[in-house]
Design a binder for these strands. Structure first.
Lengths: 127, 127
DNA sequence: CCGGATCCAATATGATACTG
DNA sequence: CAGTATCATATTGGATCCGG
């Protein structure tokens, strides 16, 4: 493991640092309320922009487009434009997107399993 | 399932709505970069405030306290104050906190598994 | 219908100074 | 050392208008 590293300088360290900062960047993109809710809402369906806006409760036009662009850029969803009039744009999770969704599912399940514990803790704390 | 509901009015619906809005609230608290990174950094260790600040790369004093308070309020971590001088405060994940951590672990693993796919997708998109 | 651009308000965040 | 308070700044988010 350390051999090549010693011969060639510090390329492995540099690679690791680059990978880490990239991982952190991706994490910062993905680990936000709207992105996670969008992925969860999409599931394994194919939805139009307006359908997504209806599904994700409380999201604004702007946040939806912004996050959809970001998720598309990161390859988590496909954006398919139908050249009709009026235009029709459909979104579908990609393989990696669906994989991430299963972890979000786990998070949602966790939330529901712990609703009462959390509510109780909040009441205790707020006094 | 619908019987009691019809007899008593709509209590189950009301309960469900309340549970949903609570779930959403909790999700909004937890699904943010700093909260997730703090939980992940803590793992099953017990760390002091200053140790956590060192572990969570780039977090500010303020964001750390703010998120620690929030996580404590939601019962995801314990805050133990040692009445010494200088003061010493230690943080540990609770049961629910540790359970949530396993889902965050999955998310981190996903990130690393998909680094190259995502980087490639980004490069494609940015042209 | 989709989504970009703009303007404006609200909020998040960082730096700093101060207290027990 | 841990935490609060304050202020300045940056970022987010919402409303709205316009163009393809």
């Amino acid at each position: 493991m350390g051999t090549r590293r010693q011969l060639e300088g510090l390329p492995e360290d540099a690679d690791l640092r680059r990978a880490d900062s990239l991982a952190r960047e991706i994490f910062s993109d993905v680990a936000n309320k709207w992105a996670l809710l969008i992925i969860e809402a999409l599931g394994d369906r194919t939805l139009r922009f307006s359908e997504l806006r209806d599904e994700v409760d409380g999201i604004s036009h702007k946040m939806l487009t912004q996050n959809l662009r970001m998720l598309e850029r990161n390859g988590l969803l496909d954006r398919r434009i139908h050249p009709t009039v009026p235009p029709k744009v459909e979104y579908t999770l990609t393989g990696p997107g669906r994989a991430l969704r299963t972890t979000i599912d786990a998070m949602c399940a966790w939330t529901h399993r712990n609703l009462t514990h959390i509510e109780a803790s909040r009441n205790r704390f707020d006094t």
